[in-house]
Design a protein around this nucleic acid. Structure first.
Length: 262
DNA sequence: AGTACCACCTGACGGC
DNA sequence: TGCCGTCAGGTGGTAC
């Protein structure tokens, strides 16, 4: 699930649990998630150091180390973190285990192993290399409009394009467009300034609400479409059937009645 | 510049 | 019950 709100919650989780503790050992159970670094490189880069602070850009989480370098965490489609005491060792899906000298562990969990872990010297360089756009929650309205006016294509794939703005994925783009009452396949060329302003405002409010509710769909307002993505899902506004179509290869959910196509 | 499709991986689910 | 195809919220590459 890790889109911007989910990763922000993981950031806060690290802040609340794992900072300023010496890393005594790093156990790498699968090397598949390592990006541009060896097991040995990751171990020596972390062991004997502490996690000092966190920074998030889009769906990427960076943790500053006492060495001055950064631990980079990306969660793919199934990533999670779990901080727990020694006794509970042996979780089924943890790929990397950080052991702290207080007897606790932080597990990087990634069932499908599509996430990425690395150590970086420079975050800015990394973001530039990935060509990531500005973080969606930092974006101002004028900049947002400028970005949208630069491109063509569907509004959904535009919101999801990490090179334009970073953080919005498949699920939250659907939610933002549902609340904006705009069909996800609408061509950005056809959207007025007012349309864009509405999308921008909904983007902000959806992100804010999702973070406030700890990115836990079970705690989202019933007015959210997010919990209706399953087959036979119903529109929270009109009760109609939720439609499912492919847009840029991703499954988009929307309500035909409530969302106008431009 | 778009989009369509594939690949990377594993697990869950529905149909038969 | 069991096998199999399909799909899943990520990114990145290719070919049109």
């Amino acid at each position: 699930m890790p889109e911007l709100p989910d990763v922000e919650v993981l950031k806060q989780y690290i802040d609340a649990t794992s900072l300023h503790k010496n890393i005594s050992n790093v156990e790498i159970k699968s090397t598949k998630v390592l990006e541009g670094i060896s097991s040995k490189g990751l171990k020596t880069g972390l062991e004997g150091h502490c996690l000092e602070s966190t920074h998030r850009h889009g769906k990427y989480l960076f943790v500053r180390l006492t060495s001055g370098h950064w631990l980079m965490l990306h969660f793919g489609m199934t990533g999670d973190l779990k901080y727990y005491k020694a006794e509970n060792k042996g979780m089924s899906y943890d790929q990397i285990l950080f052991d702290f000298n207080n007897g606790y562990h932080l597990a990087y969990i990634n069932k499908r192993m599509l996430g990425k872990v690395s150590i970086l010297e420079d975050i800015g360089k990394f973001i530039k290399g990935k060509k990531l756009g500005p973080d969606a929650s930092d974006l101002g309205l004028e900049e947002f409009k400028k970005i949208i006016n630069r491109v063509r294509g569907s509004i959904k794939s535009t919101l999801m394009n990490q090179k334009l703005m970073a953080g919005i994925g498949n699920v939250y783009s659907d939610e933002i467009l549902f609340q904006s009452k705009i069909h996800p396949a609408s061509d950005v060329d056809n959207l007025s300034g007012d349309n864009l302003k509405r999308i921008f405002q909904k983007m902000k409010s959806v992100i804010r609400m999702a973070i406030k509710r700890r990115a836990d769909p079970g705690r989202y307002p019933s007015s959210f479409l997010l919990n209706q993505r399953h087959k036979s899902g119903k529109c929270p506004k009109c009760g109609g059937e939720v439609e499912r179509i492919k847009i840029s290869g991703r499954s988009a959910c929307y309500c035909r009645k409530c969302q106008r196509k431009y």
